[in-house]
């Protein structure tokens, strides 16, 4: 179990860095969606299933959706 947590932590650090260094816009929302999934996975491994449930729905679905809507609005109204 500890090895698994260590691997997911390294993937998490890499995913967080990827979110920050992805500066093009629709791409960053997708990377954020993946990041939310990895955080949810880490939370399940740390024995916090309730928190993981909220984090996956919110971080992978709700926030990227709102980001894409904002970008579509800004792009379409020019």
């Amino acid at each position: 179990m500890n090895v698994l947590i260590a691997i997911v932590l390294v993937v998490l650090a890499a995913a967080g860095t990827a979110v920050v260094f992805t500066r093009e816009q629709p791409s960053q929302a997708i990377v954020l969606s993946f990041y939310g999934l990895v955080v949810g996975l880490l939370l399940v491994l740390l024995q916090a299933p309730a928190v993981a449930l909220s984090e996956i729905v919110v971080g992978s679905v709700a926030i990227p959706m709102i980001v894409l809507l904002v970008l579509a609005r800004a792009h379409g109204a020019r």
């Binding site: 967080g16 920050v20 816009q25 960053q28 929302a29 954020l32 990041y35 971080g59 980001v67 970008l71």
Partner: peptide, 10 residues
């Protein structure tokens, strides 16, 4: 600005 908000989320 959207990049800023997502980095804040991280």
């Amino acid at each position: 600005l959207v990049h800023l908000v997502l980095c804040l989320s991280v």
